[in-house]
Write a protein that binds this DNA or RNA. Structure first.
Lengths: 113, 113
DNA sequence: TTCATATATTCGGATATCCGAATATATGAA
DNA sequence: TTCATATATTCGGATATCCGAATATATGAA
């Protein structure tokens, strides 16, 4: 074995970093809302901006972050750009995390009283 | 219905915020490593610091973030404080997210070539 | 071309997060 | 008490993230 970097197989620490990058992309309420909205149906940027109640550039920036992580995909349709989930698996993960969240809130409530 | 805040039932936006807070807590490689380490067995702070290869205060700070989100629990044992997962469900979520991550990397690889 | 529309990007200031260093706190032993 | 050990917290500078505002880019219509 040499010291050369293996470009194909990321190291263990790199996997944790990539994993954390995904979580970080999910670490914003608007971006979670985007994913749930897209799980209902593909949407244009301007539709999402209205839905999230944010200016269009803000929506585009959030979309870019999710797109860079390959969690969503975009497709141009004339003037418009339609966004969609890359895979519905992320919704399952988010739903399971909601269960974890509910349990965590219950524990915190118990801890207080 | 009045304008009074309902303290028991968080609003929809608050739920997205809490959900995002959980994700944000997961958005650091060391904190993900902590959760996987604790899924193997409970550990002392100094064990975790050594395992993560970080100074003890850094480990304590990461632990505090996970503890505040009620993802882990602590138990004092004399001088030491033993940390453990609050529930193993978070590991299932992280494992499912790994699958999402693998798929995302595959898509990105395809997109390049 | 020129213009309108939709979207993406850049810029800059405000805020949040991070970590090393120092220190505070808690516990048990002597 | 006093001390040693383990852990938690605070402080401050470096860095990252966020968003509004402005602007750039892409496409289609005229």
């Amino acid at each position: 074995m040499s010291d050369e970097k293996n470009l194909m197989a990321p190291k263990v620490e790199e996997l944790y970093l990539l994993h954390a990058n995904i979580c970080q992309a999910l670490g914003d309420p608007k971006r979670i809302q985007i994913l749930y909205a897209l799980s209902e149906s593909p949407m244009r940027v301007s539709d999402l901006a209205e839905f999230l109640d944010v200016p269009q550039p803000t929506a585009s920036r959030h979309l870019a972050i999710l797109r860079q992580r390959a969690l969503i995909i975009s497709e141009r349709n004339g003037n418009e750009v339609i966004y969609n989930l890359a895979s519905s698996n992320i919704i399952d993960v988010l739903n399971d995390m909601r269960i974890v969240l509910r349990e965590a809130i219950e524990r915190q409530t118990k801890a207080i009283y």
